[in-house]
Design a protein around this nucleic acid. Structure first.
Lengths: 322, 322
DNA sequence: GGTTGACGTGGAACGCGTTTCACGATTTAT
DNA sequence: ATAAATCGTGAAACGCGTTCCACGTCAACC
């Protein structure tokens, strides 16, 4: 396999000059450039990436840490891969399967300069362990981190939830149920806050007895419908933690003869594929911008010119369930 | 940052010896090993991966090429990442977004020795282009390739489909409809073959008028139900190209008052998450073994000791729709 | 007892680009 | 016209491990 030196010899210039041609640096005359390029093409030469990485001290690779690759994080992942690729960075996936040791490999790889930076989607290691690796390269997180030294692109769910509530109110609906996710999470707390604040602001009754918690999957949504039936008075609308829960609510409600949206309106979160398939009105996280910002937060440690952050705003996609 | 040479100086041995310790090679006395390891720990030293890759000529990285990361390929992807990780290989994802040029980057990276091998999940480049890169390292494909020089782990769908047909016949059902995927694909042809062979073998009527083609999504499944309604005579069962199509058939059939499974039995393919959620009887591809085999097919070019292939057999998961 | 072989270790070359420094040749500024 | 800046290019050091070759030592084999 040919190398730089061979190209230098064949073209009659030094390695330094050939290197300059490869890196498109100035201070190379057009004729020289042409001659060198011709030899490079003839020899079908490409520089060895490892040698480049070694001497430059950069790999143009970013590690992405996650417990597993699930559908929930998919849009974020792909958007990030995309954003990184736009700036010439490849993404390496580290799946931990919730194994601390396996996850640590990613951090070790940062230390060993196999990656230039890390994006944590979900992590099982202690924050103190993680931030100790901060000195080896930039680390950002998707998850909210309790430490300031690891920036995060997590969003406050308040505004998004407010959007959902507002939308339902503007539909003329006032009796609103809620299916939340993990009860202790900050996300859930902020969502509850948004619901309660808005209801109060409109002088409407806050129905805590219509809070359904720990709803994650389609089946949880189906169960919610049955629990709503036993309440005597029934809500006119429900806001669901995610599209799957909403899908469960929708299918089960329709199966039981409910008229959606006239008797029951449904708003969900995430606006995933299934939301459009089923016609769910859904609140959309600005996933693409979050992913872009994740890269932007890494960029000061990766590029000479750091990238500006993009605005993060929730959107509401209104479909047939409201 | 400390390097090999520093460790060598501090421990009083040569770089060669320190390298031997790091690589656990023989010919190092236990005392020497201990002393060197102590210094390494003290200095918190780790070898630079790029230097290792450069001198060894290997990166322990494998590239995975796909148009995008979708739910369909997810189980395969994760299984592969897993299988590779077991042997110390990391996986880099190259998403092409159907852009030939972007996809080519993966092949260039093989040439440039950034990855030791490539797994193609889906490719948009011409086979001749791809196989020209074969000389730079092992390449395998998930997709069936028409060329012998790129091995594939794709499975002949005949047996799997036969499994589905057989199962329905054993349920006492004889009037079977089929919802196929891409009509021109070899997979579809083999599936049709299996259906027709089995029906003929049992002296049963082959119903070509009950072939629904180009069914991919949930909505396609819903449409199929409506088309079945207009046929006068109705099938007793349907085999669907994938779980989503089956989900559409199931929900729409039930909505229209059909009794599943008594009036309509449904068998689907892939046995994805949604199949278990909805209780679909589904044919399961041996994804994990396919992924493992993908790595095994690469292994002759990666490991001193090639890995043996695992058997690939379809399974049938019987649930409530049959 | 001499030969053979394994053992322990160091020196130096190697893998392959990048980058700093130096220097002559031009061009630009003053 | 002269100092200063820019250009074009090469030599050599550098980044960091790996590995081949060589050499001395000691145990095993006949």
């Amino acid at each position: 396999m040919s190398n730089l030196e061979e190209i230098a010899k064949l073209s009659g210039f030094s390695k330094a000059t050939v290197s300059r041609v490869l890196n498109k640096s100035r201070h190379v005359s057009p004729e020289t450039r042409e001659k060198v390029l011709r030899v490079i093409r003839e020899m079908d030469y490409v520089p060895n990436r490892n040698a480049v990485s070694l001497s430059k001290g950069k790999t143009l690779q970013i590690g992405m840490i996650t417990a597993d690759i699930s559908e929930i994080i998919l849009p974020f992942m792909t958007s990030f891969v995309e954003a990184a690729a736009e700036h010439g960075f490849q993404t390496i996936i580290y799946t931990s399967n919730l194994d601390k040791q396996r996850e640590l490999q990613a951090f070790e790889d940062l230390k060993q300069k196999r990656v230039d930076g890390l994006l944590i989607i979900t992590s099982v290691n202690d924050l103190s362990v993680i931030s100790a690796y901060g000195k080896y390269g930039p680390i950002v997180s998707w998850q909210r981190m309790e430490r300031p030294d690891i920036p995060s692109v997590a969003m406050d769910q308040y505004d998004g939830y407010a959007l959902a509530v507002q939308h339902l109110l503007s539909c003329g609906v006032t009796r609103i149920a809620n299916a939340f996710g993990r009860p202790e999470s900050l996300n859930t707390q902020r969502r509850i806050q948004a619901y309660e604040d808005l209801m109060a602001a409109h002088g409407l009754e806050v129905r805590r007895d219509w809070y359904f918690k720990s709803a994650y999957h389609l089946t949880d949504g189906q169960n919610v419908v049955h629990r709503m039936l036993g309440l005597g008075e029934e809500p006119q609308a429900i806001i669901c933690a995610n599209d799957y829960v909403a899908a469960g609510v929708l299918s089960e409600a329709r199966r039981l003869g409910w008229d959606v949206p006239n008797e029951l309106r449904i708003v969900s979160f995430d606006n995933m594929q299934i939301a459009s398939t089923l016609g769910l009105t859904s609140v959309q996280n600005p996933i693409r911008n979050q992913a872009y910002n994740a890269f932007a937060l890494l960029s000061p440690g990766l590029l000479k010119q750091p990238l500006p952050l993009k605005p993060l705003e929730f959107g509401l996609v209104v479909r047939e369930t409201t």
